[in-house]
Design a protein around this nucleic acid. Structure first.
Lengths: 205, 205
DNA sequence: GTTCGATGCGGACTGCGGTCCGCTTGTCTC
DNA sequence: GAGACAAGCGGACCGCAGTCCGCATCGAAC
């Protein structure tokens, strides 16, 4: 379970992968996508995926660890693209803009990402208590910490604020705001703008 | 499941409750407390509670809806006391202090609450996607919205910020900060202080 | 005390995520 | 091509949360 080669985001097509394994990975992902788009995430049962893909249940768990891992794998392409935009894309998301602007842009892009992927992302990010942090989440936390630090926030506060702000951008949080809480997309976006700027310009402790 | 009389926090000892039902409720809660304090939350299986209490599994679900409901019931007394402190306790948590001070105090108290109840609270607040909002959470959200509004934040932003700040005080968030993220209690407390003040003094949109 | 309707009870049952282990199948070596 | 070893495979299996429905029990009315 801790074997790095089993983390899908880290080894999508590593050289030392057997041919049948690669074929089955593709079959499983196709089956999963098909089930989600036809019947929604809640219909994505491991057994259903196994039957649709024509493989055994064990095969899926071997590749993707668990249900959350499979769902993450479905989002992997987009998540990777998002990451690339952060590192090398055009400002204000990428480098070139000021830290406060980049922080705001990060949140707005993340909110759009959550809206786009909705329930899949929510289901994928429901965390196993005590499990290790997902690498994508860790990367985002680091990104925010660096942005805040370069905006003049002290290191301790930057570490806390990065984590707190990420919580506000969590799939479950954002979807609840848009659904249960009855906020419009514009309210969420402008609220985040306010919060992010306030955090970035906070006085050093 | 939607019957109001089944919500434990709303009907702990309503008059029209049969004697055996009340006895069984007490038996179940005692059994649950005993299991948690002896073996931790993860050992709190509905079957184990049923066996320890000497009742059937169906009885527990009838009273408490589901596992989360049972866990919430365990925290009910403390949650109620917390609520009372908010409404009528001494400042700065209760009325009498300025809104920013009360906002900061709310968060600090909530962080302490999370630390005190740890895994039980985390397990209780793991949300069923799409389920209705827990009344305690709704009350906290309203409380924060009113504090923010009285601090001069516009209504739309207050609604968003209340939800975003609550996400930062979520049991899972705070426990991750203290555990996985390696922040000390002091870092979390002073970080919250900074964030809450920044949000409360944000310019009106 | 007896009757009677409503309320509560219990445990077999379902469907799920996740594990396990004997078997199959690729791939590398000679 | 034959042999051998590792890697992958599959589905029976487990423990769990949550449901269902026939049955027992309570409390009120008389």
């Amino acid at each position: 379970m801790q074997d790095a080669s089993l983390i899908p985001i880290a080894a999508p097509g590593s050289a030392c992968e057997r041919a049948d394994a690669a074929r089955n990975r593709a079959l499983v992902l196709d089956a999963a996508r098909q089930i989600v788009e036809r019947s929604g995430v809640e219909a994505l049962t491991m057994q259903a995926v196994a039957d649709t893909a024509g493989v055994g249940k064990g095969t899926i768990f071997r590749r993707f660890s668990d249900r959350a891992g499979l769902l993450h794998a479905l989002l992997d392409d987009d998540e990777r693209a998002f990451q690339q935009d952060l590192i090398g894309g055009p400002p204000p998301l990428g480098p070139g803009a000021g830290p406060a602007e980049r922080l705001v842009a990060f949140g707005l892009a993340r909110i759009a990402f959550v809206v786009r992927h909705g329930d899949v992302l929510r289901a994928a990010t429901e965390h196993h208590c005590g499990g290790p942090e997902h690498p994508v989440h860790a990367a985002h936390r680091l990104h925010l910490r660096l942005l805040l630090a370069s905006a003049g926030v002290g290191p301790d506060d930057a570490a806390y604020l990065a984590s707190a702000l990420l919580a506000a951008l969590d799939a479950a949080t954002v979807l609840d705001q848009l659904g249960r809480d009855g906020l419009s997309h514009e309210q969420v976006a402008s609220g985040w703008d306010l919060l992010a700027r306030a955090a970035a310009t906070a006085p050093a402790s």
